[in-house]
């Protein structure tokens, strides 16, 4: 197996007496989609926070391409190549779709302390943003302010922003949320293509999509990873069936 892009080892985070994330280790290797599933309250959001840097761990390390990033700020991690999308669409509402992507490109280049030249006259930046929007099929909506985009379009714009960062890996938090069946199908196709560019750590509630997409699946329950394996292995795992899939099938 090749060198992991993202490697978590022994990550633990307590909130009072609650161990929200308990000794979690996992890896993300080039070319794969690694899905993280688990019932509500299993600690997925906390774990994503630990990886992105929003939350500091009590112990354990996060490594990105071998570099220890455990103590770095959210912004530093992003500049090192951690491309993140949000569970609830989190964009700049007053900016157009293109404006959001241009901002990400600008951040990627690391040049935000430029005080003179108008950013909208920056043709290469403008063109690059338009190209990225075309990749996710939003080029016709480029000049629409984000607040006026539909929910599905905003999910795509989230991906476009992540693409603009040209990251070493993608951290996608429920990209299918609220998409509907057609939107989900499109997103599944798109993620298949996206993983060629960089591996994806995917948190997702839509089990059909997860089992279709994921090369590996890790199951998080009460802050611990109880199993990691291929879709077939996870389906066959009796412990997983009991605590998770069984629960969902029951009602």
């Amino acid at each position: 197996m090749s060198e992991p892009i993202l490697a978590l080892s022994g990550l633990t985070r307590r909130f009072g007496a609650l161990k929200a994330v308990d000794d979690v280790s996992l890896t993300l290797v080039p070319g794969e989609i690694h899905a993280l599933i688990g019932p509500n309250g299993a600690g997925k959001t906390t774990l994503m926070g630990l990886i992105s840097g929003r939350i500091a761990p009590d112990s354990g390390t996060v490594r990105l391409v071998g570099q220890d990033i455990t103590r770095l700020s959210v912004a530093r991690r992003a500049r090192l190549g951690l491309g993140r999308s949000f569970q609830v669409s989190s964009l700049i509402p007053d900016y157009t779709a293109r404006g959001n992507v241009m901002l990400a490109l600008q951040a990627r280049q690391g040049h935000s302390y430029r005080f003179v030249w108008p950013v909208m006259r920056d043709r290469p930046l403008w063109q690059a943003a338009t190209d990225i929007l075309a990749r996710v099929g939003l080029d016709t909506r480029a000049s629409v302010e984000t607040a006026f985009l539909s929910h599905g379009e905003r999910r795509l714009l989230e991906i476009a922003v992540a693409l603009a960062l040209d990251p070493r890996c993608f951290l996608l938090d429920e990209p299918m949320a609220g998409l509907g069946s057609e939107g989900t199908a499109r997103m599944v196709d798109f993620l298949q293509e996206l993983k060629q560019q960089a591996p994806i750590l995917l948190v997702e509630h839509d089990m059909d999509a997860v089992f279709r997409l994921a090369d590996r699946i890790s199951v998080l329950v009460y802050g611990r990873i109880i199993a990691t394996g291929t879709a077939a292995e996870i389906r066959a795992n009796s412990q997983v069936r009991a605590v998770y899939l069984g629960e969902e099938a029951a009602p």
């Binding site: 929003r54 959210v74 989190s90 700049i92 007053d94 030249w117 950013v119 960062l165």
Partner: peptide, 23 residues
């Protein structure tokens, strides 16, 4: 109009997003 302004106004609207893309 400059990159600085784009970053500053973005931070006003959504500081978490700005940090997540590296600003």
């Amino acid at each position: 109009a400059a990159r600085f302004g784009a970053a500053l106004m973005a931070i006003r609207q959504n500081p978490d997003r700005a940090a997540a893309i590296g600003i």
